[in-house]
Design a binder for these strands. Sequence first.
DNA 1: CAAATAATGTGTTAATTTTACACATTAAAT
DNA 2: ATTTAATGTGTAAAATTAACACATTATTTG
Lengths: 246, 246
Amino acid sequence: METLVNGKQVKSVKSLQDIQSEVKVINRIAISVDCVIFGFDENKLKVLLIKSDLKKFLGKWSLLGDLVDPKEELDSAAYRILKQRTGLDDVYLEQVHAFGSVNRHPADRVVTVAYCSLINVQHHKLKILDNELHWHDVQNVFELAFDHQEIFSTCYKWLQKRIQEHPLGFNLLPKKFSLRDLQNLYEAILNIKMDRRNFRKKFFAMDFLIDIGEMEQDVPHRPGKLYKFNFDKYSRKKKKWVGIDF
Amino acid sequence: METLVNGKQVKSVKSLQDIQSEVKVINRIAISVDCVIFGFDENKLKVLLIKSDLKKFLGKWSLLGDLVDPKEELDSAAYRILKQRTGLDDVYLEQVHAFGSVNRHPADRVVTVAYCSLINVQHHKLKILDNELHWHDVQNVFELAFDHQEIFSTCYKWLQKRIQEHPLGFNLLPKKFSLRDLQNLYEAILNIKMDRRNFRKKFFAMDFLIDIGEMEQDVPHRPGKLYKFNFDKYSRKKKKWVGIDF
DNA sequence: CAAATAATGTGTTAATTTTACACATTAAAT
DNA sequence: ATTTAATGTGTAAAATTAACACATTATTTG
């Protein structure tokens, strides 16, 4: 495969055929995507799990995932799984990490790409008809099948970090929400308590909340105002991060 | 494949053989790793590139990468590439993102997992004998082969963000460095100018720098003190991130 | 219907962190 | 000995964050 290029000898210039023979079937690996689907219900952060369909892990819960078809985009595979399982296709979805331990799957080498998804439980509550599918409180997720505990843990930490820098949390709430809802969401995800007055001040100062002039309904106390998030304004003004802080 | 579990009928319990037949050869995909290897030299952030060995991209530069063997860990594959190309095996390496567009590789479906590596150029300068391998100023990286421009761009942004929250930048410096070196590093990576006095104050306040009692040598001005980074202390005290800020 | 309850809604002050900025010191070069 | 070009240190203003208290409103209870 020695070739002349501009009169100089260049080593190992490869044609497509050369590559194709390198990428022999023997070198190929199964790829899957696994979705960590978060929801927020009754002021708790939830994750959607399914009973494992593999004998070795009978009784264990696992993430929702599937093999990626060679003609399918990774993102599309993740959307496909979400659509199949929740009935929704306009959900927030973001790739988090690839997990590729040689022995992570008992049947074969399967490299999996983990995605985080945030969905509004209120909107899809009724779509989950399969009773092998269940929302779990994130604080009670243990001993998942495969390496899904590690994947879940990575994605949960990712969410905790990410939600402090980007407004993705709103995907877990209804379009209209109260500031109390928003604070409950942050407290549930970060697993901390926050000062109500400072929390409000913070969000009002960012100026991305739109007062829609409506109030909460059917609450057993003074109803709060309802807001929605101004995604347009955010995408125009999003802050650029500068500041060293280990 | 109907089975009884605890007296209840469970649909579709799969044995390993079932899975293995699902993961047919036809469903497998080539996986590669691509390394974005950063270095720091003459106060500039550099990236190590190689001339593409593919005819379609003749003359274009590309990242260092290779196919992953089915028996090989993803991380190991990345280390292998680094070892081959730089002669070093104790380098900082971290997975950043998986890129899987169906048509990203002209020969076949190849999903690639991008890794960022940070190496100390001083230590390996002489190992790069292959003249098709070259350190490029990150500001002058254009039109790479494949989708490597996108991969590079993602990894560079990742580095800019990451270096502000974690002390990985020290991997780009010699073990002993001056505060000026450190500031030059940050300025090069973030592409901004910083105030020298505030920069020092910031790092001294974090209290992770050890004054090793030595001074710079052979500088044409007053020599500065040399420091090293206290990784042990950092790993004990690393800050947990709380604070909403979009 | 009045009182009690349990939330929402607002503001002020202290503490901390960040930014802006100036001058003395040191070693090498002239 | 003087000039030069860095290093090394400190202080004050500004901005942000943290701590904290009280009036308001709708519902529930007696």
